[in-house]
């Protein structure tokens, strides 16, 4: 489960994307907390106000943690196009590795949300007969290149069901 040395890293600007997304989440949490304070909690007894301040504070602190962890997330978020499979690796302390054999791939999708578009990044979704899995935030050139390689590999692979 160790990350192979030839595994690909994501483009560096992905760190800014993650930061921006986390800032948006934090902003939404703060807006909700402020709205709840003015419209409901302010008129409640002190006991509830104190608890609201504690819970709200914890929520804001929790939303900051992913921002601190961005360098860690970047260092241990990699993918590998091996000869027989696509592998995705995530995490160091809590590790997760996914493996999809190339001959199970049915199709490949490239999607781009507003934030990804702003940074010229793409999400590559690999579709099997059962599930989807994604390599998020790769640059345009790599996405097109990977897509072509995956489709070629899937076409060359033996058809799974002998009578289908």
């Amino acid at each position: 489960m160790d990350i192979p040395t030839n595994a690909q890293v994501l483009p560096k600007r992905v760190k800014r994307v993650w930061l921006l997304k986390q800032l948006i989440i934090m902003l939404v949490i703060i807006i909700c907390l402020v709205a709840a304070w003015y419209f409901a909690i302010k008129s409640m007894p002190n006991f509830w106000q104190r608890w609201f301040q504690i819970v709200g504070g914890v929520a804001v602190v929790i939303s900051v943690i992913p921002m601190i962890l961005i360098p860690y997330r970047y260092a241990f978020n990699r993918y590998l196009m091996a000869a027989e499979s696509v592998d995705i690796y995530q995490g160091f302390l809590f590790r997760k590795a996914e493996l999809i054999p190339l001959n199970r791939i049915q199709n490949v999708r490239i999607t781009q949300g507003p934030i990804s578009r702003l940074f010229h990044l793409n999400n590559l979704t690999i579709v099997t007969a059962a599930h989807n899995f994604s390599i998020n935030y790769i640059d345009n050139h790599t996405a097109q290149n990977l897509r072509q390689r995956l489709i070629n590999a899937a076409l060359q692979a033996r058809e799974v069901a002998e009578d289908e």
């Binding site: 489960m1 160091f92 302390l93 590790r95 590795a97 493996l99 099997t128 007969a129 059962a130 799974v160």
Partner: peptide
């Protein structure tokens, strides 16, 4: 018929115990 495979482990389990959790994906 196996569509994919996932493995998960925390650092201690993987390095000290040489173990991991495994998930098999089927349709």
């Amino acid at each position: 018929r196996i569509q994919g495979m996932q493995t998960r482990a925390w650092y201690g389990l993987l390095k000290r115990r040489q173990g991991a959790h495994m998930t098999i994906v089927i349709r």
